[in-house]
């Protein structure tokens, strides 16, 4: 395989290796926090922060970590940044922090982050790991935005807390409850398969 250009390193996270729709990683936070767009954005940004800084640190100290304890070392690095993100949200955005509850600390076990360290940052330069982390985060935020927009608009008739659909609209409460999350994500994953199939046919 020829080495990817910097641009491709970034865009692969958006579609071909999109963590949610294509790799099916990090499902727990995706399903849990997408009942409102604002929560989805907060979760996406917190994860982005952790992923980017963990990737930079792991790729710069990769030669110092003995192979046998690498997973444990990655987890300590990740946990450090997760703690920072958690404290930051609790201090500056207490309401969002309360809404997200245990899901911010749970970023530490988000398989996207550990997966990128193991599959990418431990083998590539700092610069490439940074671009990769940026692309993956963008893909993750994109997926969270799509899912949370659908759920908030249909489930509450609002977007970012503002009235979006008119008063004629009877909100489908089920969309902001757990079943709505599962079913919407299932349909979205099926849709990405269809689109991917169409793209392949056209080539």
């Amino acid at each position: 395989m020829p080495p990817r250009t910097i641009g491709e390193e970034f865009t692969k996270g958006l579609w071909h290796e999109n963590p949610i729709f294509r790799q099916l990683l990090g499902m727990c936070p995706t399903l849990a926090v997408t009942n409102a767009v604002i929560n989805g954005i907060a979760m996406g940004l917190a994860t982005t922060f952790v992923l980017i800084f963990s990737s930079i640190v792991v790729s710069s100290i990769k030669k110092l970590i003995p192979n046998q304890v690498r997973i444990a070392s990655y987890i300590v690095v990740i946990a450090t940044f997760v703690t920072m993100a958690d404290r930051f949200l609790a201090a500056f955005f207490p309401l969002i922090s309360k809404d997200l509850g245990p899901y911010v600390p749970l970023i530490v076990v988000n398989c996207i982050i550990l997966g990128r360290q193991e599959a990418f940052s431990s083998k590539n330069s700092v610069g490439r790991s940074f671009i990769d982390a940026l692309g993956m985060s963008a893909g993750f935020i994109l997926a969270l935005l799509i899912l949370s927009s659908i759920r908030e608009i249909l489930g509450a008739g609002t977007f970012l807390g503002h009235q979006f659909l008119g008063s004629w609209f009877e909100p489908w409460v089920i969309m902001i409850l757990p079943p709505g999350a599962f079913i919407t994500l299932g349909i979205l994953i099926a849709l990405t398969f269809v689109i991917e199939h169409k793209i392949k046919q056209r080539r």
């Binding site: 099916l24 599962f182 079913i183 994953i189 269809v194």
Partner: peptide, 23 residues
């Protein structure tokens, strides 16, 4: 099962219906 839903898609929808029942 329709082709695009095979695998994760249908599994998530089944989980959704289960969650509905558990409600």
């Amino acid at each position: 099962v329709p082709e695009p839903l095979k695998g994760a898609g249908i599994a998530l929808i089944v989980a959704g219906i289960m969650a509905l029942a558990f409600l």
